[in-house]
């Protein structure tokens, strides 16, 4: 029983670590922009959070810096892809390389040093005393609880509000919104910056909640997993959460089973999430899916008013 609780509660933590980035990417892609640099931006978030926490001993300030880091990176990406209308794939790759390299460079001083300041587990009164479920869901850190609120909010926003309707239209056919007098460029800027901010928070979750240390490249492919899950979920936050939980489960299953199956090489277990990523990507992007997928029709296409 303890094993199951450990696996499932670990799965929740793992899921949240990719969900912030996943929701960010969902909104960005819904607006018609594809940001491939998730991994790099997560690393920048993880690094900036650790550095600030290490030097100031202030977790709230650390998160503020994380959010600002994400926003600045988002503005750069938006300037390149929306204003200059550069190729989104190339710019995404540039963000990835920039984030990976810059975070390694700026975080060098504190690399592998314990921070001793993290998001600790806060058992919620009453709820955490529910047997099993309480331990799995309600004995977690603050960022996990925020995610519990964020998920329904994101779903509600996309499908039930006026802005959500515009967001969906923006990724399908920006010319329609332009003709209706909306500012396509400003909207895309907004969603890109929101996306990168969420990605940076995802990174900070890895370095300040899951672990409590900065190491170069420590997100270890979580950005790509988040990216893959967005397509897998058909750009729907609720499905995204299910996918993230599935990944969390697979990942934790591996690390917990290692103890019980010593004969199996550990590499097999640590490779499991990545194998799952590949499978998910093939399933979600393969041509055998029905014609009308949920993919925003204008995804990865710069909007140029003149070229109508």
């Amino acid at each position: 029983m303890n094993l199951i609780v450990a696996i499932l509660s670990g799965a929740v933590v793992y899921a949240v670590s990719v969900l912030y980035a996943g929701i960010g990417e969902t909104f960005t892609e819904r607006s018609g922009v594809m940001n491939l640099g998730v991994e790099g931006i997560m690393l920048m978030g993880a690094m900036s959070g650790c550095v600030t926490a290490f030097h100031t001993r202030n977790l709230a300030l650390a998160m503020l810096i994380v959010i600002l880091t994400g926003a600045v990176l988002g503005l750069i990406f938006a300037f390149l892809t929306v204003t200059l209308q550069s190729d989104q794939t190339v710019c995404g790759m540039a963000m990835l390389i920039l984030g990976t390299g810059l975070s390694g460079f700026l975080g060098e001083d504190i690399a592998s040093k314990p921070i001793n300041l993290k998001f600790t587990k806060i058992p919620l009164p009453v709820l955490s005393e529910i047997p099993i479920i309480g331990d799995i869901l309600f004995n977690q850190n603050l960022l996990v609880y925020i995610m519990y609120l964020l998920l329904p909010l994101a779903t509600f926003y996309i499908y039930k509000t006026r802005w959500g309707l515009k967001l969906r239209a923006l990724g399908e056919n920006p010319a329609v919104l332009d003709a209706a007098g909306e500012n396509v460029f400003a909207m895309r800027y907004g969603y890109i910056v929101f996306g990168t901010t969420m990605m940076a928070i995802s990174g900070a979750f890895v370095s300040l909640a899951q672990t409590n240390v900065w190491q170069e490249g420590m997100t270890a492919g979580k950005g790509w997993i988040a990216f893959a899950l967005v397509a897998f979920s058909s750009w729907n936050p609720a499905t995204l959460a299910l996918g993230a939980l599935l990944f969390g489960f697979i990942s934790n299953l591996g690390s917990n089973l290692q103890i019980y199956l010593p004969g199996v090489p550990t590499e097999i277990f640590s490779a499991m999430p990545y194998v799952a990523t590949i499978v998910v990507l093939i399933i979600s992007t393969g041509n055998f899916r029905k014609k009308h997928t949920a993919e925003p029709a204008a995804l990865a296409k710069a909007y140029d008013r003149e070229s109508r």
């Binding site: 309707l165 239209a169 399908e172 329609v176 007098g181 009308h292 949920a294």
Partner: peptide, 17 residues
């Protein structure tokens, strides 16, 4: 100027500020 994946009603309301 219509969004294919949205319903007729949603398309109309998109145009109604």
């Amino acid at each position: 100027h219509l969004i294919p994946t949205l319903s007729a009603a949603e398309n109309v309301f998109l145009y109604t500020p």
